[in-house]
Each structure stands twice: as C-alpha cells, then as structure tokens.
Design a protein around this nucleic acid. Structure first.
Lengths: 221, 221
DNA sequence: TCTCTATTTAATGTATACAATGTATTGGTT
DNA sequence: AACCAATACATTGTATACATTAAATAGAGA
C-alpha cells in the first residue's frame, strides 16, 4: 500500500472511530511530524478527506473534523434508506451459504465488540457489515457510495448518537441474515428500511448551534 | 470563485464536453504553464478529478482522462436507474409552475443546441437537466452524487455513445415536464426509468480494448 | 478597566528545487 | 535486421523555502 493511502486510512479510522471528535482541528505541521512526512503529503490526504466530507477545510484557516449539520445527518440517512433496501434483489442473486457464513462471523464479532465495549471495533464492524453487503450486490459504483455513506454515518453518530450506541441496537444484524437465508426478498427489503429508519430516528438533534438560538423567543416578551 | 475551483471547472468542462477525449494524457507541466500556475495547484485539481473518476492517475506515470470500462459504464447507468426514478415523489412535492417554467427553458435550450450541432452545449444541458431535477428533490447528498453520475455519463458517452448522440434522443425532456405538471407520480417514475434504460441500451460496447484481444482465438489453428 | 489598534505570532497557500521513477533513444551484439 | 542493454531524457514524487493570510497579544488612549 502506498504511504499516502496508509496515512489516509489511519486518519479516516481515527475519525470514524471517534478518536478525533467532530470539530477537532487538524494542523498540518503537527500531523506531518506525527506521520514523519512533509506537509505536502498531509495536505493531499486532508483534501481527499474534505472531498469525502470527513473534514472541512476553510481557505487560510485549515482543516478540522467535519461536524455534520442536522440537515446533512438526515440526508445521509435518507440516502441510505433510498439505496440500501433497493439492493436486496441483487444481493439475493449473489447470496450463497459461503457468503452467509462470512457475514455471520462478522455479525458475531460485531456483537462481541459491542458487549465488550470495544467501541472502535464495533463502529468499524457495523459500517463494514452494511457496505460489504452493498459490495456483494455487484455494482461497484453504488457500493463505493454506500461505503462512504456508512462511514459518514459513523461520524454522524459521533455528533448526534446516544452515548455508547453505535447505531444498530434495534435488532441484530444476524436477523437480516436469517431473512436472506430464507430468500425472502420483500421481507429483506422491509427489514433494511426499518433498520435504517430506526437509526435515523435514534439521532438526537436538539443541540442547537449557538449561532441559531432565537434569543427573542427565549427572553423576549 | 477560488483559482483552484476555476481550474477544476475548466478541466471538468473540457472532459465532459469531449474536448479532452478518454485516454488523453494530462502532463502536469504543460497544464501548469497553460493555466499560469505552478504544478502544485494542477496536482491538486488532478487528484480531485481522479477521486471523482474523471481522470486516472498511476503512480509515477501521471494522469490521463479516464477511459471507463464497459463494467463501469453499465454500473453508472444502473446507479442512475436505481436512484433517479425514486426521486420523483420528493420532486413532485417541490414542483411549482415557476420551476416548470425554469426547466422548460432549459429543455428548449437543450433542444436548440442539439439541432444546431452545438455538441458541447447540448452535453452540458442534458447533464444539468438531470442533476438540477435531483437537486430540487431536496436531498443535497444524493443530488451531488447524481450530479457526478450525470457528468460521468457524459464521459461514458464520449467512449461508448453513438456518434453525435448526447444520450437523450429517445424522447424529449419536455415530455417529462408535462408529466410532472400533471402531477402523475407513477408515470413520472416510469418515464425516468425508461429514459435511463434507453440511454444505457444505446451504448455501443463491442469495441474491445486491444489488451484483451484473444490472438489465439483470432489466428490460432 | 475597557476597547480599539498595531504588532507579533502562527498557521496555511504557493512556488521551486531536488530526488526517484518511467520512457525513449542509441549503440552494440547476435 | 532484430533484439537487448545501457544511457539519456522527460515526467512525476516529495521536501523545503517563501509569501500570504488569519489569529493572538500587547500597548495606547479614552
């Protein structure tokens, strides 16, 4: 793997695993000395992360971990609700006992990580479960987009999730695998829709940014 | 607009309008002298275009305009077929006579550009029609993705389109506006699906790249 | 003491220099 | 004449230096 790619993955990992919280500043020189490369390489990674909405860079003001707006959070989840359930037909076409086995292992690992409070691992595994399903559906273009949406969801949960929750407590992922093993297409689609809507509705969106507080309503007569 | 953004748009424009054909090499020093900036700025734009799949950069070998594979071409169209028709409900919610007016103007311009053989303009307007519809549906995250897919479609048509076609000859875009004006949701969804499937099936996918030619089968006994 | 301004400080933006890599050309050998 | 090897050339990869901009601090005036 190239050095850039390595740095990129380390930083993305730190962001989606909530090691670098939303809003954290990312000074180029500090990062360059941490990774042992010049600012040139860091800037490249930073700009890539910016294009993928994991960080925001303001001109002459540097980069920081993106703090998704409420609107962005809802739109990411809505996008997943629109796409992921629609992938189930193609998913079933590529389904096999070998795949079932693979995903069941993943679901168990995820459950264990959750139980052991291995937050970082649990987050990674939750996202991976979803985007590997998308990959199996066969369309790489869509799968890459879903992958991004899953990671963005991890970031969103860092900002708006209930404490400790990684987003998928509404029912086990292995439930979904049972449905796939039965080959029930419509039920699989329904399950996925409910699953994602549940995550969406679990977001806590009441923490207003200070710039939007309506003082007139708060204190006015 | 920032200088980077300006360069980015000019290059993207040149690519989607088929001024820079698929496979065209993009040497950094030639571009930097053309735009009057150093290689630093060019590299940033090149890498951005690469992440968006408009160019490919190979390590130590530089950048060239992406020549989409057949698989990529089909997947991009399939992605649009999965997403765009699904946007019609939200689209109708935001529909108004003012919007109708705006899109009809666009459709007319597009038709005129096609008739006058203004290939570049026609391509731009065709893509814009689709992604502005997606934008009106209200989900910015999805809309940006659809925008990218539309531009990638333009590039795909450069590689696999019938000569002179910009992809939407199967029926006027104004037809779709008629359906929206009537508020017929299911018909709008159907129309969009057929429209995109028609574009997909119009691609000419038989020109094998030379690296895949089976000489044994061609010349072998 | 507070505020406004000037200066300093620290960060990013951009260009350039050098190193590393890939490609083309030339010359020699079979 | 065709093929291989070695060298020369051209292009990209990376680091660094300088310019530019935003933020922080200190000082003067009210």
């Amino acid at each position: 793997m190239s050095n850039d790619e390595n740095i990129y993955r380390q930083m993305l990992k730190a962001i989606v695993e909530h090691q670098l919280p939303p809003g954290a500043r990312l000074p180029e020189d500090r990062l360059s000395e941490a990774f042992g490369v010049s600012r040139t390489g860091i800037r490249k990674v930073l700009h890539r992360l910016a294009l993928e909405h994991f960080v925001v860079v303001e001109k002459n003001k540097g980069a920081q971990v993106n703090h998704p707006s409420e609107a962005e959070a809802l739109e990411v989840l809505d996008s997943r609700i629109l796409i992921e359930p629609q992938l189930t037909p193609a998913l079933l076409q590529h389904w096999s006992s070998a795949q079932s086995q693979r995903f069941r292992t993943m679901a168990l690992e995820e459950k264990r990580a959750e139980k052991d409070n291995q937050l970082a691992d649990a987050i990674q595994l939750t996202a991976r479960f979803h985007y590997e399903l998308a990959t199996l559906a066969g369309n790489q273009v869509l799968a890459r987009f879903v992958e991004q949406l899953c990671y963005r969801s991890s970031l969103i949960l860092a900002a708006y999730g209930t404490r400790g929750s990684v987003g998928c407590e509404c029912g086990d992922h292995s439930q979904f695998l049972d449905i796939l093993d039965q080959g029930n297409e419509s039920e699989a689609e329904t399950w996925m829709t409910h699953h994602l809507k549940h995550i969406k509705s679990s977001l806590i969106l009441e923490n207003k940014a200070e710039e939007n507080i309506d003082f007139q309503q708060l204190f006015g007569r």
